[in-house]
Simulated assay, not measured.
Amino acid sequence: MKRRAAMIGLGHQAVEDHLPGLAGSGKADLVAVCDSDPDVLRAQQQAHRVPGFTDVRQMLDEVKPDFAIVAVPHHVGRQVVQECAAQGVHMLKEKPFATSPEEARGLAEICKLGQIELMVTLQRRFNPIHTSTIGLLDQIGTPFLIDGQYTFHTDDPGAGWRGDVRQAGGGCIIDMGYHLIDLLLWYFGLPDRIIAEFSAAALPDADYDAEDTAVVQLGYGSDLYGSLLLSRWMAPKTERLHVVGTRGSVLLTKGAVQRLNLDGTVAEELSRPHAPASAATAQIDMGGLWEIPSGTVEDSESILEAVYRETAEETGLTISEITGYIGHFDYQNSRGGTTRQFNFSATVEKTEPVILTEHDAHQWALPTELPEVSDAVRNLIAS
């Protein structure tokens, strides 16, 4: 059964990303749209042939969606989260999660009390270009230098609510920099040292205080360091992340990733110019799904040795005995090929504590009471 989705906020991100993502989804249907602008609302209501609302609470009362995609100005986010949580509606929310640490803690508590899940839309985590980068980083030796840049030019970098720190929570760092910083957290974890310099000086006579340009320097205890350049004023439009290692480097740009030799020649390249569209659908269909801990078999180990190692690495649990083989399924990997996952049943020495390194949460579940998992996992366990 498909989930019923409502779209709250009909700006550029909704029209260019989330609504097309819903249209391509095999697991969700758009059932309502909501926006405070009647003209904008009318256009999307007619285009998608669904009910339209200017009031979030009224839409939730009348339509009762399973989840909502929230793409509203930063300062409106808390109100929408409160409304959805009060009615038990899960959310896929545009970044940022919150405009301050205090608001973040408050929103987390609201979601906990409402027993709902809130996922932040970090589309790059569902983009095959960005997921394949992980494998390429393993081939460049020891990484020691990071050079990131996300810049573009807009004539008024402080226009509207985005120029007001009180409403936006910040400027280019919390807005466009959010994606680049998340990639670093995904690939390398939290840095040990951070220094940031930023300014709102591109238009000296303009009245805005949210930074239009920033330089962030970061360092890890493993002798890995680097910098990020972020700007709403600097042309040309550039989005890239260059990681240099002892045996080569990886250059990630929008729509392509290259592994480079030490002399800069291309060793291998993956290009997916239309990947952003598929990523929008993937985060709807796959976001929030639970999965079985898994990993890759190393060259020097057997598949059973990999089961012991991956379980320990991903969960902190120690397997006492592998009790059986329960089957396999195939799925499309980040490079567009097919990967086969072999699955085993096992007992562990202790069920707690669970220490996660690659997932956001865990739960023990009975085969008859599974949370939301892929069809492949559900069929495997049911058999």
Rank of each mutant, 00 (worst) to 15 (best):
M1P: 07
A6W: 09
I8P: 05
I8D: 01
V15I: 02
S25M: 04
A28Y: 00
A28K: 00
V33T: 08
C34V: 10
S36R: 14
A43S: 07
Q44E: 10
Q45G: 13
G52W: 08
D55P: 05
D55G: 09
R57F: 10
Q58F: 05
E62Q: 15
K64L: 14
H74L: 02
H75Q: 12
V76A: 14
Q82I: 07
A85M: 09
M91C: 09
F97G: 04
E109P: 06
Q115F: 12
T121L: 14
R125M: 09
I129R: 06
T131L: 12
Q139Y: 02
F144E: 08
L145I: 07
Q149V: 10
Q149F: 05
T151A: 06
F152T: 06
H153N: 08
R162S: 08
I174T: 08
I174P: 01
H179Q: 13
L183P: 01
Y187F: 14
P191R: 10
A196T: 15
S199P: 06
T213H: 10
G226P: 00
L229S: 02
A235M: 07
P236F: 02
V243R: 00
V244P: 00
S271H: 09
H274E: 14
G288E: 02
L289I: 01
V297Q: 13
E305A: 15
V307W: 07
E313T: 07
E321P: 04
F329A: 11
F329D: 04
D330T: 10
Q332A: 15
F342V: 10
F342G: 04
N343K: 07
A365T: 05
T368W: 05
S374Y: 05
A376F: 00
V377R: 01
L380K: 04
S383F: 11
